[in-house]
């Protein structure tokens, strides 16, 4: 029994040393054009998804089904998000091709991207949390440092309807009027 415990401790120490060896040797590529190995990808993705899920759960989602929310959120989405997360009629951009992990295409319907099983409320909570707090080492900034909650919910409201919008509808809803949009 003692030998088993000793063996386990030794194995743990060896694994730890090997981990430090990999980190300090610099052999692991951090280049954005080299994908993670499946184990690292799974670890990071699981960590991210679980963390967002837990942190966003207490949020109360306001009623986002109104024209004013869409008018307030549309121009902000176009200026702050569309470069990476695309807009109707675009399937890629320099940013969407260059970033790793690849930013999700938010014009894709719920059944097309990774949160197909999530209900709308849960998705709205997650989107609000991600926009407000950002995600470490992913290229997603924390917009909450410069934008209040009202403005972020407006972007979430726009995201809820984005997959259904045609190019013409998107253009109308996202055009920022000369006064800088009075819907905020």
């Amino acid at each position: 029994m003692l030998n088993i415990i000793r063996g386990m401790i030794l194995a743990g120490v060896i694994l730890l040393l090997a981990g430090f060896g990999v980190i300090y040797s610099g052999v692991y590529s951090v280049a954005a054009d080299t994908p993670h190995n499946p184990l690292t990808y799974w670890l990071l993705e699981t960590l991210r998804e679980r963390s967002i899920d837990r942190a966003s759960r207490p949020l109360d989602v306001p009623d986002l089904n109104s024209a004013d929310w869409l008018l307030a959120g549309g121009p902000d989405y176009n200026e702050m998000c569309a470069g990476c997360h695309l807009r109707p009629g675009k399937t890629y951009s320099d940013m969407s091709l260059g970033l790793y992990p690849v930013p999700p295409n938010l014009t894709a319907g719920l059944d097309e991207h990774e949160h197909a099983d999530d209900d709308k409320q849960s998705l709205a909570r997650r989107q609000f949390w991600i926009i407000k707090h950002g995600i470490k080492a992913s290229g997603m900034p924390a917009w909450g440092k410069t934008h209040d909650d009202q403005r972020i919910w407006a972007m979430v409201a726009f995201l809820q309807r984005l997959p259904e919008l045609t190019e013409e509808q998107y253009q109308i809803l996202t055009a920022r009027d000369k006064a800088g949009s009075g819907h905020h």
């Binding site: 410069t146 013409e168 253009q171 109308i172 055009a175 920022r176 009027d177 000369k178 800088g180 949009s181």
Partner: peptide, 20 residues
């Protein structure tokens, strides 16, 4: 004021309502 909506006024775009 860097993120005030009025900051974007310079690149204001009119909505194309011809398809309405």
């Amino acid at each position: 004021n860097a993120h005030d909506p009025s900051e974007h006024a310079a690149k204001g775009e009119s909505p194309d309502c011809s398809a309405m």
